Simulated assay, not measured.
Amino acid sequence: MEDPKRTSEPINSVHQDEIWKAHLKLEKDSADVWPKKWGFLTDAYKEYKRESLKLKREIPVEVPHHLEEQPATPPETRINVGPSPSVPQTTQALIGWRSTRPQLQLEQYGSVHHGRRSFLKELGWPLSGCY
């Protein structure tokens, strides 16, 4: 593929088209030859699939009770959506108008504290131990 940043050399679209045709011809020829060279793999796969289906029918697998599918809980039982506050009259008041109310804030489970502690300090190791 031509580099789009290089505009000094003219692009020969006929040559590019011939290259594309050669790629397509090679791909089509490869697809025609594949069953003759590698077709035996499809037979082996079909045999494997038949055997696995036979084994599945013979051996019933009991799922433990803790891994059984649970009925889906309706979202209404988990999510409580309260009424939205009135929309501000000015566009400046519109910025952050929902986040000023504590019941509408996104962080309902507390603020995030990732990366506040040092593993080396917890172990009492010097900070130069990682370099």
Rank of each mutant, 00 (worst) to 15 (best):
L24E: 14
P85H: 05
V81L: 14
A44N: 08
E122M: 13
E2G: 12
C130E: 14
E9P: 02
S30D: 03
M1W: 06
C130Y: 06
S111N: 08
E69A: 11
P4H: 05
G115P: 01
K49A: 06
K46S: 03
T7R: 15
P102S: 13
R117T: 12
M1N: 10
D32G: 01
T77Q: 13
G129M: 09
E107Y: 15
I95E: 07
L24P: 01
T90L: 05
P75S: 11
H23F: 12
R98S: 06
N80K: 09
P35Q: 03
P88N: 03
L120Y: 07
P83Y: 03
P75T: 04
L120S: 04
L106P: 03
P10Y: 05
P75Y: 08
W125C: 12
T42C: 02
K49H: 09
L24G: 02
R57N: 12
L24Q: 11
K21S: 09
T73Q: 13
P102I: 04
H23V: 06
K54N: 11
W38C: 06
W34C: 02
L41A: 13
T90H: 11
E76L: 02
A31S: 04
I59H: 12
K56E: 14
G129R: 10
E18W: 09
L55G: 02
K37Y: 10
C130G: 07
V61R: 06
A44M: 12
I59A: 08
L104Y: 13
D17S: 12
D43T: 11
K28S: 13
L123M: 14
P4I: 08
K56C: 02
P10A: 12
V33T: 05
L127S: 15
K49G: 00
G39W: 00
N80W: 04
P10R: 11
H23D: 07
E51K: 08
F40M: 02
G82P: 00
E76D: 15
W34N: 02
E9K: 15
H66C: 00
Q89H: 05
V61F: 10
E47L: 04
E18Y: 10
W34Y: 03
R6G: 03
V14R: 14
T73Y: 03
T90V: 04
W97P: 00
P88R: 02
I11S: 14
Q108L: 06
Y131A: 13
A93P: 01
L94P: 01
L55F: 04
Q105H: 07
P75D: 14
E18S: 14
G96M: 05
S8C: 07
T100H: 07
E47N: 03
P64M: 01
W38P: 00
H15P: 00
K56I: 06
K37W: 07
D17P: 00
H15Q: 15
H65Y: 00
H114K: 10
E9M: 14
P4Q: 06
F40H: 13
P10N: 10
S118F: 03
R57S: 15
S52V: 07
Y131E: 11
G96V: 03
E18C: 12
Y48L: 11
N12R: 13
N80I: 10
L104I: 02
T42L: 07
Q105R: 15
W20F: 14
L120H: 01
P64Q: 01
P88S: 03
